[in-house]
Design a protein around this nucleic acid. Structure first.
Length: 478
RNA sequence: GGCGCUAUCGUCUAACGGUUAGGACAGAGCCCUCUCAAGGCUUAAAUAGGGGUUCGAUUCCCCUUAGCGCUACCA
């Protein structure tokens, strides 16, 4: 039975790299009919914030993936402590009474790594127990074997066979002097207790894994399968960080920017993983069906954004093409919050009528604010009267076209076919081409040259609004 | 500094020793067309460098270079 977990620590918003880790865990769980666990790794009391926890839930909720079990490490501290003590009892760890940061100064990393504090490993069990009982502060460290040629190894499902000499592993801490477990200890104790079968996480943990293998062994537990994921990086090659790269690293930025979560999940899946065929646009079911560790890459993936445009063009493309395939009722519903945010007085009926006209013209849901404004506002924003002049025409032509169009629209059948045939028929006598006939009307009614197809647009706007706007345009030209 | 991981078009990626090195996004051009889109077609664009192994290396090995990660009583 497959059991996987996503274990964020609430010390920041939900990072897009974390979101991808969640998604891959979820996909693996679903693919194998396993269990998806959400565990909040909140052992660092100093840095945890409620705001961050809220933002993580916010982001995960938007992804609409869900989980089967939920835990918080802060509620399981007794378990972590007991596990640490069992390791101490087995003689595989020791108390280090060296004050914290005592070695902060010898940063001259000219030689090799720091391995342990001098003398700390040699304190006898009796003395150690006595000093601890006397209330002297200490940290519990793993007693990394120091015999020659000792190595730790594991087989990563993505990166393959990994081996590291114990000579390169320091005596890492398990329990802090305040009694709280370190990340390594808490994480492994919980993974063991929760019977996690596969640990899928960022490659930044690859070298930590040797420590984890040591802990699992000390706990008499077979280590789970490890699958490390390549990291997501910025175009400048640096790790994505809020300070340096701004809001692009937060999933809520994509949500608020008008992405469909399904498109966004699709995009994230394509970063560091491939179905190995040429498919790119995939449904959640397709992703679940085809997801395996074999498709995961080993090199870091760049999220392609710029200062001006925070969204990766591929994500935008995935989003716009998904928007185009959405049933109109669904799309209309998705659009509503963005129409409201744009300040539009949008009834569901009106929005539903507008939706087909903008469906293939918006790349994000938020674009409705730019693309569909003239459907919802009363008075058009001021525009340059020169816009009313058709190709190869002049303002006199614009004026005569608009005057005639006004007459035509006043009493033609006000639907697509009626409007088209009437306006086309009106072009001939005026000695203008159909395009020259349509353009002034379009601008008069929409306030700009680029707009959805004319006849549908006129129909949705209604006769009154159209006539009123044409009258205004005629005034502007007179 | 030490240890580890990685290296194919601008970006995401395919090719698990033999291909004219494929696809997608973004770019350019053309077509379609009432504008804008959408759609169709075309085009430009890559195996980091150097050594091996092999009849043959994008692919296997070594070195160099570069990037990233870890090196906390953070996670």
């Amino acid at each position: 039975m497959v059991r996987v977990r996503f274990a964020p620590s609430p010390t920041g918003y939900l990072h897009i790299g974390s979101a991808r880790t969640f998604i891959f865990n979820w996909l693996y769980a679903r693919h194998n009919s396993g269990t998806m666990i959400l565990r909040i790794d909140d052992t660092d009391v100093e840095r945890n914030t409620q705001q961050s926890l809220d933002s993580i839930f916010d982001g995960l909720k938007w992804l609409e993936l869900g989980w089967d079990e939920f835990y918080r490490q802060s509620e399981r501290l007794d378990l972590h402590r007991a596990a640490t003590l069992s390791i101490l009892d087995k003689g595989l760890a020791y108390r280090d009474f060296t004050p914290a940061h005592a070695d902060a100064e010898d940063k001259d990393r000219t030689g090799s790594t720091w391995l342990f504090n001098p003398g700390a490993r040699e304190v006898s069990k009796e003395e150690s127990d006595r000093r601890a009982a006397a209330g002297e502060p200490f940290v519990i460290r793993y007693l990394v074997p120091r015999d020659q040629d000792r190595v730790v190894s594991f087989n990563d499902a993505v990166y393959g066979e990994q081996t590291k000499s114990c000579a390169d592993i320091e005596d890492f801490a398990l329990l802090r002097s305040n009694g709280g477990p370190t990340y390594h200890m808490a994480s492994c104790a919980d993974d063991a207790d929760l019977r996690i079968t596969h640990i899928i996480r960022g490659q930044d943990h690859l070298t930590n894994t040797f420590k984890h293998v040591l802990i699992f062994e000390a706990l008499d537990v077979t280590p789970p399968v490890f699958a490390h994921l390549p990291l997501l990086i910025a175009p400048d090659g640096a790790k994505l960080s809020k300070r340096k790269h701004g809001p692009v690293v937060s999933v809520t930025t994509y949500r608020d920017g008008g992405f469909l979560s399904h498109a966004y999940v699709n995009f994230l899946c394509l970063l560091g993983w491939s179905p190995k065929d040429d498919r790119e646009q995939m449904t959640r079911q397709e992703l679940t069906d085809v997801f395996t560790f074999g498709g995961i890459n080993r090199s870091n993936a760049v999220v392609n954004f710029t200062e001006e445009d925070p969204f990766d063009p591929k994500a935008v493309w995935l989003n716009s093409s998904l928007i185009r395939t959405l049933p109109l009722d669904d799309l209309s519903r998705e659009l509503m919050p963005f129409a409201q945010a744009a300040g539009f007085d949008a009834t569901p009926e009106k929005l539903r009528a507008v939706t087909p006209l903008i469906q293939e013209r918006i790349k994000t849901l938020k674009d409705i604010g730019e693309v569909a404004d003239f459907f919802f506002i009363d008075e058009l924003k001021p525009y340059d009267p020169a816009e009313l002049v058709p190709q190869k025409g002049d303002s006199a032509m614009a004026l005569s076209v608009l005057k005639r169009a006004r007459e035509v629209l006043a009493d033609c059948v006000f639907d697509h076919d009626g409007l088209e045939s009437s306006l086309r028929a009106a072009a001939g006598p005026l000695n203008v081409k159909a395009g020259q006939m349509f353009q002034p009307v379009r601008v008069a009614v929409c306030g700009r040259k680029n707009a959805p197809p004319l006849f549908e647009t006129l129909q949705v706007l209604g006769r009154d609004t159209c006539l009123r706007r044409i009258d205004r345009a005629i005034q502007m030209l007179s």
